[in-house]
């Protein structure tokens, strides 16, 4: 089924249209809160660690995700392309659909993505018909390889996962926004709605957040705050941000006033 949006500014990933530009994480807070977080966030896509869904006896996270929301299974736990491919296929078997977020980590401390393996996994899975959304360290060359490998979007990290530190990599994400035709979705490090707003103003297409919500005192309320910040940032981007004036007024006599024709 191809998703169709009801707005005139949809987020389009591999032909699927979404009204919401907020992708929610699900793995760090109580399962009972998922439903209301989705509602307050207005989210239409939620990530899910396949390894968390690999449970049989009680409280499978899959059962807590409401109908009609697009599942974005991730491959967390994969240390290389081969493992990521296996997890993606398992996600498909579990009925999670064709979307997959590639997460490949070889570092248990910072959980930084392994770009080379991510490119390999993207190529394999794209060929097998997956809609591949790769989590990556923001590097223009890697992003171009991912485009060529068949990625459906690019998901650069803003800061180390779980750090809530915002757009530490802003300059490099801006380069991706400027140079890459695919949607750019900032995936990790966003800790506050203001940071999400800032990213959206830069021209980022969507925001994914998990820890920022999970560590909030009131998770549904924070989901709502993110929704508004993301919408505000998007509107600011679309409206074209005004010039930032230097301190004081601009010189009234133009420097080029001497030119005669």
């Amino acid at each position: 089924m191809i998703h169709k949006s009801t707005t005139n500014d949809p987020l389009v990933i591999a032909g699927h249209e979404f009204n919401s530009r907020f992708i929610l994480g699900s793995g760090k807070y109580s399962l009972e809160l998922i439903d209301s977080a989705i509602n307050y966030a207005g989210a239409e896509m939620i990530t899910l660690a396949v390894r968390r869904a690999n449970t049989t006896k009680s409280e499978n996270i899959l059962e807590f995700i409401p109908q009609g929301v697009t599942l974005l299974p991730n491959t967390s736990g994969a240390r290389n392309a081969e493992e990521a491919v296996r997890i993606a296929k398992l996600a498909r078997e579990l009925g999670c659909g064709n979307f997959v977020k590639i997460e490949i980590m070889q570092d248990s401390k910072y959980l930084l993505p392994e770009n080379n393996e991510t490119i390999k996994a993207t190529e394999i899975l794209a060929k097998e018909g997956f809609i591949v959304m790769p989590y990556m360290y923001p590097d223009l060359n890697v992003a171009r390889h991912l485009v060529n490998a068949g990625a459906a979007c690019i998901m650069p990290l803003g800061a180390p996962i779980g750090s809530n530190r915002g757009l530490s990599t802003a300059d490099f994400i801006q380069i991706l926004v400027d140079e890459i035709e695919l949607p750019i979705i900032v995936d990790a490090g966003i800790g506050a709605p203001s940071q999400a707003c800032e990213a959206m103003e830069m021209g980022v297409d969507a925001i994914m957040a998990n820890t920022a919500l999970a560590t909030a005192g009131d998770i549904p309320l924070m989901a709502s705050a993110f929704r508004k910040a993301i919408e505000a940032g998007r509107e600011a981007y679309l409206s074209g941000l005004g010039r930032v004036l230097a301190r004081g007024a601009e010189a009234s006599d133009p420097l080029t006033g001497f030119l005669r024709d």
Binding site: L31, T55, G77
Partner: peptide
């Protein structure tokens, strides 16, 4: 206590 018990977060890959 508001915590989420998790019985498994693991996959053989």
């Amino acid at each position: 206590a508001g915590l989420q018990p998790v019985l498994n977060d693991y996959l053989y890959v």
